[in-house]
């Protein structure tokens, strides 16, 4: 038993018995307002020393110990919840079908068709790309919309908050004067002019990174990778450029306007082309999109343009979020 717990139990005992010795803290609190004797009226003196009611004691006790008791309870509760959930999940996982067994329920006609016919039906050598961008393209469209939603939210909360002419008409309505807490924070990125090593490395590696990103995106239907991973690679090139040459340099060719325009139009192209494909598929109309020969760059129907669109969205969004966090604007 540690000292804190002992003290807590002692306090608790004193509080229960009531007439026990006052704790130091409580005394300190009652003594706190130093009132000069000649300004004190007699009835006030009496009120200062009257027996405390139960409610007052409760309030004092909560003020003194509430936080520590709460943190103890919170901790034990969170540990118990964690242990219970982890245990439950471990038991569940141990009862699941064995990993990699060929009689598992997941090895059914769905997987069979994806693997056997995937190449011929979608034209993509990389069956994962065929699966996510053709068989289940609606989900992937939703996923890119998730990214778009996130980007719009961050842009709304971080960027639009900081314009000077952006005050709402009714200040009272919008929470008194606490709305200024998100005012433009100073940029935290200090640019050093003589950082020759960083610049040298950046000038060498940025072209290589961009090339790598483009390869991953364009070969998305042939090799592992695709729009999302390629876009992430491209965004690292932008981030490196911003760090080596300053945000102003990036701002010259990529600002908020370009960002909104490029990602909106990429998503729009995605939505319209895939919408056409969905619509024709559901109404049993031939879509007329050529599949091409498996293994060629220009094959797999819509998968290549969709990968490029996703790449643009991801690259812009990840860089944009970085810029918003560090500079407060894109």
């Amino acid at each position: 038993m540690n000292d804190g717990l002992k003290k807590f139990l002692l306090d608790f005992y004193n509080w229960v018995t009531g007439n026990g010795a006052r704790t130091e803290n409580e005394d300190a609190m009652t003594e706190l307002p130093p009132v000069l004797p000649f300004t004190m009226e007699p009835d006030k003196i009496q009120s200062r020393f009257h027996e405390k009611t139960l409610q007052e004691r409760r309030k004092d006790w909560i003020n003194l110990h509430g936080l520590s008791v709460f943190s103890i309870l919170y901790r034990s509760f969170s540990i118990i919840t964690c242990v219970v959930i982890v245990g439950l999940l471990l038991i569940t996982v141990s009862e699941l079908p064995p990993f990699g067994d060929e009689n598992n329920p997941a090895n059914n006609e769905v997987i069979d068709r994806y693997i056997k016919l995937g190449g011929n039906e979608t034209g993509a050598q990389n069956i994962v790309a065929g699966m996510i961008l053709d068989y289940r393209a609606f989900d992937t469209f939703g996923e890119s919309a998730v990214l778009f939603t996130g980007a719009v939210s961050v842009l709304m909360i971080l960027s639009a908050a900081r314009r000077k002419n952006d005050e709402p008409k009714n200040k009272l309505h919008s929470g008194f004067n606490d709305r200024n807490f998100l005012k433009r924070a100073p940029p935290i990125h200090e640019l050093k002019d003589d950082d020759a090593i960083l610049r040298g490395v950046a000038s060498l590696s940025i072209p290589a990174i961009i090339l790598m990103g483009c390869v991953v995106i364009i070969n998305g239907h042939l090799t592992p990778g695709g729009g999302f991973s390629g876009g992430a690679v491209l965004s690292t090139a932008l981030i490196l450029c911003a760090n080596a040459y300053g945000f102003k340099k990036v701002h010259e060719f990529f600002n908020e306007r370009t960002y909104i325009f490029s990602s909106s139009s990429a998503l729009l192209i995605y939505a319209l082309s895939k919408g056409y494909s969905f619509f024709t598929g559901a109404n049993h109309i031939e879509s007329g999109i050529p599949i091409g020969t498996i293994g060629n760059i220009f094959s797999a129907g819509l998968i290549l343009p969709l990968n490029i669109c996703v790449g643009i969205i991801v690259a812009g969004t990840l860089y944009g979020v970085y810029a918003l966090f560090s500079e407060g604007e894109i």
Partner: peptide
């Protein structure tokens, strides 16, 4: 390998950079 590339780029790269920025902020 698809997941590996994405995990390396997003999990190890971008997420940590954003965490660092937030910590600095």
């Amino acid at each position: 390998p698809d997941l590996a590339i994405t995990e390396a780029a997003v999990g190890a790269g971008v997420t940590s950079v954003l965490f660092f920025l937030a910590l600095r902020r």
